[in-house]
């Protein structure tokens, strides 16, 4: 594919998108599609969906993954770097400002009380997400033992989740490649 999109345009596109999107990285998909597929015609619908799937497969922060993959496709390595910078720099500046301004306000009595109410709520929301994600990938009740034991080991055993991921990945790979063919 020829390098048809300028790095400047990529930088501007991702910066504007980063600043107008709330919530987690998946919220970025729809506006990005509208922007690069429908309005600017930089990518076809099929190609865009393929790239989103790829961004979901690789590890890391999703908004950076998506920026890097789309930027790479549009304008090569420099495009990927520009897309990442476009996403990261505005967020870095904006959140630094928010932290500097709002950190002292956490201790104001009204805000402190509201936060005391919302902290258990955010924990509850994580638990609810865990349950909803599990309901999709786990079929029998016995299968729940596996994620539940992982949660307990991370939460109470203080084992780094990085090791859990590496072990899980390694075990699954070795089983699929070497053990299962022998059976």
């Amino acid at each position: 594919m020829p390098n048809k999109v300028s790095n400047k345009k990529i930088l501007a596109t991702f910066a504007r998108l980063a600043l107008t999107n709330l919530g987690n990285g998946y919220m970025m998909i729809a506006p990005l599609r509208k922007n690069v597929v429908e309005q600017k015609h930089w990518l076809t619908e099929e190609r865009f969906s393929h790239l989103v799937a790829k961004a979901q497969l690789i590890p890391g922060a999703f908004s950076f993954n998506l920026s890097a993959i789309i930027g790479r496709e549009l304008a090569g390595s420099k495009g990927a770097a520009c897309a990442i910078a476009g996403t990261g720099v505005p967020i870095l500046l904006l959140f630094s400002l928010l932290v500097a301004v709002f950190s002292p306000m956490r201790h104001w009595s009204l805000i402190a009380s509201a936060l005391n109410g919302m902290r258990p709520a955010i924990i509850g929301l994580l638990a609810a997400t865990a349950f909803r994600v599990g309901r999709q990938s786990l079929t029998s009740p016995a299968q729940w033992l596996y994620p539940i034991s992982i949660a307990l080991i991370i939460g109470y055993g203080h084992l780094a989740p990085l090791y859990v991921v590496a072990l899980t990945f390694g075990a699954g790979f070795v089983y699929g490649k070497f053990v299962k063919p022998q059976l």
Binding site: L57, R119, I122, I123, L126, A127, T129, A130, F131, V133, G134, S137, L138, Q143, Y146, P147, I148, S149, I150, A151, L152, I153, I154, G155, Y156, P161, V164, V165, T168, F169, G170, A171, G172, F173, V174, Y175, G176, K177, F178, K180, P181
Partner: peptide, 27 residues
């Protein structure tokens, strides 16, 4: 590598609720 990767990703997918639950317990 396909068989290996397929199994690795399937096992990881089942572990994801555990990772999220772990974050909830830490907090």
């Amino acid at each position: 590598w396909h068989d290996g990767l397929t199994h690795a990703l399937a096992l990881l997918k089942q572990a994801i609720p555990g990772l999220i639950g772990g974050a909830a317990i830490i907090l």
